[in-house]
Nucleic acid binder design. Structure first.
Length: 290
DNA sequence: TTTAAGGGTCGTCAAAGGTG
DNA sequence: CACCTTTGACGACCCTTAAA
């Protein structure tokens, strides 16, 4: 859309409120700025000169980037757009392991980034969360009925927590509705991770089945009794994750893996995910046809 | 008595923007 | 031109967390 401004309006609306004098003094510079994205002509309004801005045709790359920003629905500032795309693509395509260290490593390997340090990926993911692009899984409150009967027939009473104001019984825990993925974490002698490999869907299902079998038993044998010992919710959480990690690791060994690890699959806002999917497909096809 | 990954903080650095 | 000030990205370092 062609738009016409006088100097004051340019300063206010396009240059973030600089003084008109500054604009006039560095006119060449500011016109240069305008000409990056517009064909600039001049006109008149009363006694004022006007600046007529006619947006330039964008290059294919610019169009693609604009489309990407529109899908995200926010401005990414001076962040590296290719790295941002790579993070989202990693999550959507499910080929590499989408933990921050690994994303940084792969992005560096592809030359999208000059370092394999995690910091930047962390910042970018925090940005994606802040902007509602990566979202938290839904949680369902669960109340366990007391008492629980252990394998040996003993009753176990889980301590209830109540809301101090309403007296309402708070949920025993919250179940997170989220998919998990599994990967093998291979380390060298020094304990440094040398590669992370995602397992196939089939293997993941097999691990999950094995896990479900072993978990119920381990819970009965190792964990429920801890409630009776007065472990707090926090401590139980810790114990559970330890036992869980151990079982996953053991199963992994059976499958010939070094160190099997289970993580929550990051969730991308479904609407955005659908659009990104189309976008990446289209981009990849375009590059391929060329 | 773990351990991998995620989160917080802060210093550094570079670039941009504005002004004298 | 030269000098602020601001902004924001980056990454080192350290700490917390983990689930049905």
């Amino acid at each position: 859309m062609i738009q016409e401004y006088i100097a004051v309006e340019l300063c206010e609306q396009l240059f973030g409120g600089i003084k008109e004098a500054t604009f006039r003094r560095n006119k060449e510079y500011y016109l240069g700025e305008l000409e990056k994205e517009h064909n600039v002509r001049f006109g008149k309004r009363g006694r004022h000169i006007t600046y007529i801005l006619d947006p330039k045709e964008q290059t294919e790359q610019q169009k693609a980037d604009t489309e990407f920003f529109e899908i995200l629905g926010c401005d990414i500032g001076g962040k590296n757009i290719e790295l941002m795309k790579f993070i989202l693509k990693s999550i959507i395509e499910q080929k590499i392991v989408p933990v921050q260290d690994e994303i940084a490593l792969q992005a560096n390997r592809l030359g999208l980034w000059g370092t394999d340090s995690r910091g930047t990926v962390k910042n970018y993911m925090a940005f994606l969360k802040d902007n509602g692009i990566i979202v938290e899984p839904m949680e369902i409150p669960i109340w366990i009925e007391n008492p629980i009967i252990n394998r040996d027939g003993k009753e176990i009473w889980i301590k209830r927590k109540c809301d101090p104001d309403t007296g309402e019984i708070l949920p025993t825990f919250h179940k997170r509705i989220v998919k998990h993925y599994y990967f093998d974490c291979v380390k060298n002698e020094a304990g440094k991770v040398i590669r992370r490999e995602r397992v196939s869907d089939t293997t993941a299902r097999a691990i999950e089945m094995a896990f479900n079998n072993l978990w119920t038993e381990a819970e009965q044998r190792e964990l429920l009794s801890l409630y009776a010992l007065g472990y707090t919710a926090m401590e139980m959480k810790k114990e559970r994750s330890k036992v869980q990690a151990r079982i996953i690791r053991e199963i992994g060994r059976e499958f010939g893996m070094c160190d099997c690890i289970r993580k929550e699959e990051p969730i991308i806002n479904p609407t955005i995910k659908r659009q990104l999917n189309d976008y990446f497909n289209q981009q990849d096809n375009g590059a391929w046809v060329q």
